[in-house]
Amino acid sequence: MCSVGTAFGYFFTCAGAYILLKKYGDDTDTNKIHPAVAMGGCVISVAILLLLIVPGSPAFMAPQSFAALIVWVLMGVTFYFVSKKNFAKITKREMDYLILGNVQVVRGLRKGKDQGRVVQGNIVADQSNKS
């Protein structure tokens, strides 16, 4: 059952990376990961998931694991709908703080925007005047 959770987590991480690379990717970045790599991770995680849940496959889960997975999913769906109203009340600034910690988030570090401003910890530095 843990493998199913890992496959889901890996899928959402790769899908998030793919979306961010397509939407905010910088072609001049030398450390850039190609979006195809992230999409490949999505495909691999779906393949692993199918191996685990398709009957007759070599890695098919035992009935007890499958029952535990169903209970786990139902608990997650219940938690989501119970907590949805509380999460909707959190402002973007507070959510950034809760996720990123004490980090200043600078807007404009996107494709085609002011690339001279960088975020370093909680310090925003202007790189445009450096030689």
Score class of each variant (00 low, 15 high):
1 M>N: 10
3 S>R: 10
5 G>M: 09
6 T>P: 00
7 A>V: 01
12 F>L: 15
12 F>H: 12
12 F>D: 14
15 A>Q: 04
15 A>G: 02
15 A>K: 03
16 G>H: 15
20 L>I: 02
22 K>L: 11
24 Y>M: 15
24 Y>N: 09
25 G>T: 01
25 G>A: 12
27 D>K: 02
31 N>H: 07
31 N>R: 12
32 K>G: 02
32 K>E: 04
32 K>R: 13
33 I>V: 14
34 H>K: 13
34 H>P: 02
35 P>M: 09
35 P>V: 05
36 A>Y: 04
36 A>V: 04
37 V>Q: 11
41 G>C: 05
42 C>E: 09
42 C>I: 10
44 I>W: 03
44 I>E: 12
47 A>N: 06
47 A>T: 13
47 A>Y: 13
49 L>A: 06
52 L>F: 13
53 I>D: 01
53 I>C: 11
53 I>G: 01
55 P>N: 12
58 P>N: 15
58 P>V: 05
58 P>G: 07
63 P>Y: 01
63 P>H: 04
64 Q>D: 11
67 A>L: 09
67 A>S: 07
67 A>T: 07
70 I>T: 09
72 W>L: 08
73 V>G: 05
73 V>D: 02
77 V>P: 01
78 T>I: 08
79 F>S: 14
82 V>Y: 15
82 V>K: 11
83 S>D: 07
86 N>E: 12
86 N>A: 06
87 F>I: 05
88 A>Q: 13
90 I>R: 07
90 I>P: 01
91 T>P: 00
92 K>P: 01
93 R>G: 07
94 E>V: 06
94 E>Q: 06
94 E>Y: 03
94 E>A: 11
96 D>G: 00
98 L>R: 06
99 I>A: 11
100 L>C: 09
102 N>G: 05
104 Q>M: 03
104 Q>A: 08
106 V>R: 08
107 R>A: 07
107 R>G: 04
108 G>V: 00
110 R>P: 00
110 R>G: 15
110 R>M: 03
111 K>T: 12
112 G>H: 02
112 G>V: 03
113 K>V: 00
115 Q>K: 07
120 Q>C: 12
121 G>K: 12
124 V>K: 13
126 D>W: 05
127 Q>F: 15
127 Q>D: 14
